[in-house]
Design a protein around this nucleic acid. Structure first.
Lengths: 185, 185
DNA sequence: GGCACTTTTGCAACTAGTTGCATAAGGTTC
DNA sequence: GAACCTTATGCAACTAGTTGCAAAAGTGCC
């Protein structure tokens, strides 16, 4: 039940159309909760029917932009969700699983795949760090900024973990790797 | 497409019935890929139909245990999957999202929830460390052990990340916390 | 005005995961 | 032997997420 709340958050930050939301998801909220435009349109429909958001009075035709804004009930629902109790979700990463399968059937081809992931995570980490430098200079320190910054630091921490773990994994698979990590076996 | 492969791995480690698998998932593979008994039974059926596993010749009646073992095709499929290319999955953690929502609608009730998660992650971390001490003493160091150990170290790394991040988050929400973290506001 | 292209919204069908419940066999207790 | 518990398998219905495609409107070009 997270997607509707992710959408409410995004709409509170700025009223938007479905496509705008989809685009904004791709480069901010989507880092932690990705969604396709299909999911977003469907959810916007549900949220509107539930009376949590409404379409701004404009063209309701097919190829026409339709902007939504959050209603008081929507804000209340989001506020309640923030305090809600929820179990942390277990990890569910296929790569950890594949590593374990490799202990049984052998590591053939795995090193290549680990290197690929390592590269992707290093890129993502660099992107987060760039955002951090751009959006959170030391002088900005309102309460909202501090919260948003902590979220970003979560992303940085996770990517840091993955790069470290993948490096360790590569050694265990039998292929130690240099910093740029492209020496084929 | 990970569940069937998780099951193949578990069955290669030891032929089992559906319920046994479900139980073993709860305390090893399930740390990284949880599954309910329903999912497992359904998947066992599919894997059998696909000729990747077979039921050991025994009672095929309803309330009767039915053990499965992996066939050569199954092992081959698992082996191929280990080398397969796959995108790392984005994070999808509701707590990160809630943190961000809190920047918009306020942090009421959030500290409590963070403290609860912090507690859960600390417990999980302790559990992993206990397993590490029990199952991976320095002298055991076969190739399989090294791989399984790395997987466990992944779990340890993740839980370490979460406990650190949650502590940081708690400060940002405005409630610094002691190590045992139970001082109510 | 016709053609191609982009933007935007959306339906339909599918896969994966979850929840609730039913059914059967076997053991325990009185 | 009836009532009850545990072990074990499984169906059905649901929710969430994904993929592929279609349709309406605007934009540019000749």
């Amino acid at each position: 039940m997270s997607l509707p709340h992710a959408i409410l958050t995004a709409l509170l930050e700025k009223p938007s159309s479905g496509l705008e939301l989809a685009r904004r998801f791709d480069k901010s909220i989507g880092y932690f909760w990705s969604a396709t435009h299909q999911q977003i349109y469907r959810e916007l429909g549900r949220l509107e029917k539930a009376g949590l958001i409404r379409a701004l009075p404009a063209a309701p035709a097919r190829g026409q932009k339709k902007e939504y804004e959050v209603l008081p009930d929507g804000r209340a629902a989001l506020s309640a969700w923030v305090a809600e109790a929820g179990a942390p979700r277990p990890v569910r990463d296929p790569l950890l699983l594949r590593m374990r399968a490799a202990a049984v059937v052998g590591t053939a081809g795995l090193a290549e795949e680990i290197r690929r992931h390592l590269d992707l995570h290093r890129r993502q980490l660099a992107e987060y760090r760039a955002i951090e430098e751009r959006d959170f200079p030391p002088e900005r320190d309102s309460a909202e900024d501090r919260l948003r910054h902590v979220v970003l630091r979560g992303g940085i921490g996770l990517e840091t973990f993955w790069t470290e773990w993948l490096t360790e994994a590569l050694t265990a698979v039998g292929e130690p790797v240099g910093e740029q990590g492209n020496g084929r076996a």
